[in-house]
């Protein structure tokens, strides 16, 4: 509700409104057209595409590409692997990050701000500087080419950001809450578990929504720590599929749509939390 809109409203006639909506409708249609095109393509038969071309108007309609990609293209397995990785990374990262944030925000730990900023900086490092040593360390520990490796490295890499955000939130909690906890003789663990975590629920939800899409969408760490196709998460599986099914456009389209659906569901279910999560750390 800025003055711009107030000032604008005074002069804004029917023509202005019409122009506004026309332009934005065109922009939005253009924006959504790649997705729409892929959806259309996934619903056509192979023969239709081969005969009439990729960009032709659909003359067939079938859902057959979805089950086929799910079964034979490794999409089902990839989605399952992604779900496992995402579940463990998100819960463990948030657990560890909230512990660190609690310690840093509530206790007089020497150099706590330096520690916090160092942790945040670690999250901003270009991953390229970690790839080779991470692969070597995973090999040395005997976890190379296991989901464990993908999980632990993503936990380590994400921690800094989540700790930073939760630290900010915990600093903002009213101090009366903690005084009450002291009166009730709550120890640090009880204070953390029974008071701080429940109060942090909104920011934990925001971070969980954000982290779910980030981890689910990762490709780089999977390529770095995994080798066997059976363990690939969906992003890496798609990359393989692209080589194997190069001419089956409908299969490729269906597979990539299935990979896009889970994060999209999270986004639509938690849109508010998602956007507020994005804004933390950027909006100061």
């Amino acid at each position: 509700m800025t003055a711009l809109s107030h000032a604008g409203r005074r002069r804004r006639g029917l023509g202005g409104t019409l122009a506004f909506h026309t332009i934005l409708t065109v922009v939005c249609l253009l924006w959504i057209s790649p997705i729409a095109f892929v959806v259309l393509l996934s619903l056509r038969t192979f023969d239709d595409i081969a005969l009439n071309g990729l960009g032709a108007f659909p003359t067939s309609f079938t859902f057959a590409a979805f089950p086929e990609a799910f079964r034979s293209g490794g999409v089902g397995r990839g989605l399952w692997n992604s779900l496992i990785v995402t579940f463990f990374v998100v819960t463990l990262t948030l657990a560890l990050a909230s512990m660190a944030a609690f310690a840093l925000s509530r206790y007089r730990i020497p150099f706590r701000r330096t520690i916090l900023m160092l942790m945040l900086a670690g999250n901003l490092l270009p991953p390229q500087i970690l790839l080779i040593p991470v692969a070597r360390i995973a090999q040395g520990m005997g976890i190379y080419d296991t989901l464990t490796a993908v999980i632990v490295v993503q936990i380590g890499f994400g921690l800094g950001f989540y700790t930073f955000v939760l630290y900010g939130f915990m600093r903002g909690l009213p101090k009366e809450v903690f005084e009450a906890a002291l009166l009730d003789r709550c120890g640090p663990v009880q204070t953390y578990w029974r008071i701080v975590l429940p109060l942090c629920r909104p920011s934990l939800a925001a971070l969980a929504a954000l982290a779910t899409t980030w981890v689910f969408n990762d490709l780089l760490w999977a390529l770095t720590t995994l080798q066997s196709e059976a363990k690939f998460p969906i992003t890496a599986a798609l990359l393989n599929l692209q080589g194997a099914y190069a001419s089956s456009w409908n299969l490729l389209a269906a597979a990539s749509l299935m990979a896009a659906v889970p994060p999209a569901l999270v986004f639509f279910a938690f849109q508010k939390q998602f956007v507020s999560g994005l804004l933390v750390g950027a909006n100061k």
Binding site: L96, A97, M99, A100, F102, A103, L104, R106, Y107, R108, I109, I115, M119, G122, N123, L125, I129, L130, I132, P133, V134, I137, V152, V153, I155, G156, F157, L159, G160, T163, K175, F178, G187, P188, V189, Y192
Partner: peptide, 29 residues
């Protein structure tokens, strides 16, 4: 608003995540 002495369990709260990040981020870097 800050605790005065840092109880051992709080050190544990901080050092576990910190160790994970040091091991998987700073050491490889």
């Amino acid at each position: 608003r800050l605790g005065r002495r840092v109880p051992p369990v709080v050190w544990f709260f901080l050092l576990v995540p910190l160790a994970v990040e040091l091991f998987w981020v700073f050491w490889p870097a």
